[in-house]
Design a protein around this nucleic acid. Structure first.
Lengths: 130, 130
DNA sequence: ATTGACCTTCCAGAGACTGGAAGCCTTATT
DNA sequence: AATAAGGCTTCCAGTCTCTGGAAGGTCAAT
């Protein structure tokens, strides 16, 4: 299967798939004409990575997940640990964003937002007087 | 004031301050010896950017905020619009992360996490059977 | 034979820094 | 006066995950 179809099937842009090959996440074969030739296994891996990325796993985490996936003697505990660590990162990010959201929405609320220049948002950014 | 002290006062690493000069966010003067010489205004701008960045504004948004800050004839509506747009981005990010969190925590919950190989997390990533 | 859609490689850029190397300047100590 | 420590300078390269574009080869259909 050519890269265009692999892209459709996996939900990844062709460019991204080439990049994933570059960094060794997948290793499709080559047809006689030099085109990449994706097997079912390759497609499966691409879709796997696509889902893992959509859950926010980094490329290196995806690599680790793929190798666990390939390892029939893996311990599910290893997978769970990886996922839990990532979950913790997600939660940290959410908390950070919520803090931003709170501060910023307070500033936005205070700003009348008309054609006059005085602005609590700029004041807040400037002097810290939140 | 030298860059080291400016870094302490603004809460930004010296490297970052040099970078901000490179991209034209600040333009400190130079002392006779070639060292950057930060005025109170420079410091103020750096602290301003530091706060804006900590609220998640991009560099270009910071640049726009700074120029609004410098413009005594600004309309506070312009600032508010910028802030509201950014707030919407933050909220979008939070929603995305919460979706990830939900899916992933369900998978983590289902995984027994012992030394056996079967693992609902990998299954979920693999086949989409959430 | 020619078009158009596909494929290939390679190079560059995005955003926002961050690290390191090589070398000058300042300050304090010996 | 010499030296050492620390701060400052510039410049180059790398991080992370793609994404766009250019130059050119291949395939299917007309």
């Amino acid at each position: 299967m050519n890269i265009g179809d692999a892209a459709l099937q996996s939900g990844l842009p062709a460019k991204t798939i080439r990049y994933y090959e570059d960094i060794g996440l997948v290793a499709p074969g080559r047809a006689g004409n030099g085109y990449r030739d994706f097997s079912d296994t390759d497609l499966h891996k691409l879709a796997f990575v696509q889902r893992a990325r959509s859950l926010g796993f980094s490329i290196e985490e995806c690599r680790a997940l793929l190798s666990l996936y390939d390892d029939r003697d893996r311990a599910s505990a290893d997978v769970k640990d990886l996922a839990k660590a990532h979950l913790a990162q997600i939660e940290e990010k959410i908390l950070g964003l919520q803090t931003m959201q709170k501060t910023l929405s307070e500033l936005v609320y205070k700003c009348h937002g008309d054609d006059r220049p005085d602005c609590p948002i700029l004041d807040g950014l400037s002097g810290g007087k939140t």
